[in-house]
């Protein structure tokens, strides 16, 4: 289990990185944290001709939290975002989800943007981006960067809208709206494994304190994170509503029926928790 040979590029700045990516096209692969890519290389399931290591491009190692949201640069590690109280204050779902991403040691190297680009349908961060309606910024050498909305970014299992020659330079996660709460519930065979199913939930109360909008994103039950608008669904009908709107597949760890069932259970739990968080936010704002 050793990687196949490749040409290695270690650009010092973004321009150089984009130039190499432009030149290598579909043969070029970006190495950031490597926590998903290098296992594939070691198993020789991937054999890119060129590896573009962006770890030396310090300007990509950014994390900015504002009233609008959190912008995560391509080199910001999971652990940095997880620890950032500014990021958690602007969008608590980030920390809630990041605590569930693999194990602490993997989070020390793995990057948030890398996880988005990897687009594993069972991964947490794509669901967070999808639920919040965030976006990914894709830069290229021969044109302006483009901002791709989450809804357009995840195109299939392990497939994203990233084109050859492009580099995902950052991702933007919108801030938590007022009177809102979030939660992330998932169920994995072992702690830290990819989840059999998982739910990210966002609940927003109206100005009177009644439940306004309810949205969830489901992982592990479709080809991409599945965002469902559950606004108006009674709490005890959430599980049923979710189960009726997903088509999970069986694998060696769980049957399709079980995944469907589980997604419902987790959705009810996540919405309940997010509702509680929203309630707290509402009460806090009212005081």
């Amino acid at each position: 289990m050793k990687p196949p040979p490749f040409d290695y590029h270690a650009p010092r700045d973004l321009g150089e990185a984009l130039a190499v990516l432009a030149e290598t096209g579909e043969h070029g692969k970006v190495l950031a944290g490597g926590q998903s890519l290098i296992p594939l290389l070691n198993m020789r399931l991937a054999a890119p001709g060129h590896l573009v290591d962006i770890n030396r491009i310090d300007p990509l190692d950014t994390l900015t939290a504002t009233a609008e949201g959190v912008t995560v640069g391509a080199l910001a590690r999971h652990s940095r975002v997880e620890r950032s109280s500014e990021a958690a204050a602007a969008q608590p779902l980030l920390r809630q989800a990041l605590r569930l991403v693999a194990h602490p040691v993997i989070r020390n190297r793995g990057t948030v943007v890398g996880s988005l680009v990897h687009a594993d349908p069972a991964a947490e961060m794509p669901a967070v981006l999808a639920l919040l309606g965030g976006s990914v910024r894709l830069a290229r050498a021969d044109g302006p960067a483009r901002e791709v909305a989450a809804a357009d970014f995840f195109t299939g299992p392990l497939e994203s809208a990233l084109r050859p020659g492009e580099l995902a330079v950052s991702a933007f996660f919108p801030a938590l709206p007022p009177r809102s709460g979030t939660a992330f519930r998932e169920f994995a065979r072992r702690h830290g494994d990819y989840a059999l199913a998982g739910i990210a939930a966002l609940v927003t109360l109206d100005e009177a304190g009644a439940v306004g909008a309810v949205k969830v994103a489901c992982i592990g039950v479709g080809a991409t994170p599945i965002v469902l608008d559950l606004t108006g669904v009674e709490p005890d009908a959430v599980a049923h509503a979710v189960r009726g709107r997903i088509e999970p597949e069986a694998d060696i760890h769980a049957s399709a029926d079980y995944r469907r069932h589980l997604a419902g259970v987790l959705a009810a739990r996540a919405v309940d928790e997010a509702n509680g968080e929203a309630r707290r936010a509402f009460d806090h704002a009212g005081r």
Partner: peptide, 11 residues
């Protein structure tokens, strides 16, 4: 026995 199998047994 996995949770999925226990679920199936319950059914």
């Amino acid at each position: 026995l996995s949770p999925s199998e226990l679920f199936d047994l319950r059914s």
